[in-house]
Simulated assay, not measured.
Amino acid sequence: MTAITRRAAFGAIASASSSLALVTAAAAAAPVEGDAVKPTPQQRFDNAVTELKAAAEALDPNIYQWTVNTNDDKQCGIVIAAFRTTTTYEGDGWYESRYEWGEVKRVLVTREPEHDKKGERWFRIRPPGKKFGVLMGEHDFRINYGPKLA
């Protein structure tokens, strides 16, 4: 029979107590059934905004950008805005203009394939009676102009 030294006995006790402490800490950290951890207000807000965005984008696939601001020091505490495209390219022709040059409420849009960059289509936008216009990428065209008129 082997003799147990005092040093070996104390080592075994220390090892067992540290293992017991780890098991106890893990059990205390585990949520008890019916005692769920409550999310913070910020987590609840973030989850609600995520759900709102998903539902809105499912209803309106034209949404391309979101703005979510909380203004703690201003009268309007929360601003949530969804920006959406207002047109799609349906061939060269007249499109509604949200920007007016006097009485002009339409622009002539022509496709300019020689200016295409990185897979994005480019267009020339001209007010009536003007020979030259501005070049614009498809993304900017879709968010700045209205539907095709003629």
Rank of each mutant, 00 (worst) to 15 (best):
residue 3 A to M: 10
residue 102 G to S: 04
residue 53 K to R: 12
residue 33 E to N: 04
residue 14 A to H: 06
residue 29 A to S: 15
residue 76 C to T: 15
residue 51 E to A: 14
residue 65 Q to A: 13
residue 121 R to N: 07
residue 120 E to V: 03
residue 125 I to C: 01
residue 101 W to Y: 05
residue 30 A to Q: 12
residue 4 I to P: 01
residue 3 A to R: 09
residue 104 V to W: 10
residue 4 I to C: 01
residue 80 I to T: 02
residue 122 W to M: 03
residue 2 T to F: 07
residue 21 A to V: 09
residue 127 P to T: 14
residue 21 A to W: 05
residue 57 E to W: 04
residue 101 W to S: 05
residue 129 G to N: 11
residue 96 E to K: 15
residue 10 F to K: 13
residue 93 G to P: 03
residue 119 G to Q: 04
residue 140 D to G: 06
residue 22 L to W: 05
residue 117 K to V: 10
residue 145 Y to G: 02
residue 48 A to G: 08
residue 90 E to D: 15
residue 46 D to P: 07
residue 144 N to M: 08
residue 76 C to H: 15
residue 3 A to K: 11
residue 56 A to R: 09
residue 131 K to Q: 06
residue 28 A to C: 04
residue 62 N to L: 01
residue 109 V to F: 03
residue 51 E to M: 11
residue 52 L to D: 04
residue 53 K to Q: 15
residue 46 D to T: 10
residue 69 N to Y: 11
residue 47 N to L: 11
residue 45 F to Y: 09
residue 54 A to S: 14
residue 126 R to M: 05
residue 129 G to H: 06
residue 113 P to M: 02
residue 42 Q to S: 08
residue 89 Y to M: 03
residue 15 S to H: 09
residue 87 T to H: 04
residue 14 A to N: 07
residue 53 K to Y: 02
residue 21 A to E: 09
residue 108 L to W: 12
residue 133 G to E: 01
residue 78 I to N: 08
residue 123 F to D: 04
residue 28 A to Y: 12
residue 39 P to Y: 00
residue 86 T to P: 00
residue 92 D to C: 06
residue 115 H to G: 02
residue 84 R to I: 05
residue 47 N to S: 14
residue 139 H to G: 07
residue 124 R to V: 09
residue 104 V to E: 09
residue 41 P to F: 00
residue 21 A to Y: 09
residue 4 I to H: 05
residue 36 A to Y: 09
residue 68 V to F: 08
residue 33 E to V: 10
residue 24 T to G: 04
residue 15 S to D: 14
residue 50 T to V: 11
residue 39 P to F: 00
residue 150 A to L: 10
residue 133 G to Q: 02
residue 93 G to N: 05
residue 111 R to N: 11
residue 135 L to G: 02
residue 36 A to W: 07
residue 64 Y to Q: 00
residue 114 E to Y: 10
residue 74 K to F: 07
residue 90 E to R: 15
residue 108 L to A: 02
residue 139 H to R: 08
residue 23 V to K: 12
